[in-house]
């Protein structure tokens, strides 16, 4: 792969447009190799025609995000799961 990439920090704004939680600190697990790490550490290519986030270990596509004038397409087939940190419930 080319070295001309950004990292998952670049997803924070576009994902902030659709999610109410901060997703770049979530831990994703790659469907390609099973590596787990924060979304912020993914290798991100783009922004045109869309953002493509690849696993830093195996370079498989984990997540794709495309913004059209009236919609956002989010393809997460390369992620087995996303673990999103949540505040503990108040007792």
């Amino acid at each position: 792969m080319s070295i001309d990439y950004l990292d998952g920090n670049a997803l924070a704004g576009p994902l902030g447009e659709i999610f109410a939680v901060e997703v770049t600190t979530a831990v994703g697990t790659c469907a390609g190799c099973g590596a787990a790490g924060p979304v912020a550490s993914l290798h991100v290519y783009g922004p045109e025609p869309g953002l493509v986030a690849r696993c830093p270990s195996c370079e498989e596509v984990v997540l794709r995000l495309v913004r059209t004038p009236d919609a956002v397409w989010l393809d997460m087939r390369g992620a087995i799961s996303l673990r999103i940190p949540m505040p503990e419930p108040r007792t």
């Binding site: 920090n9 902030g16 901060e22 770049t24 550490s41």
Partner: peptide
Amino acid sequence: IRGPVGGWF
């Protein structure tokens, strides 16, 4: 301006 964004760095 939109933000702040990014909670990792």
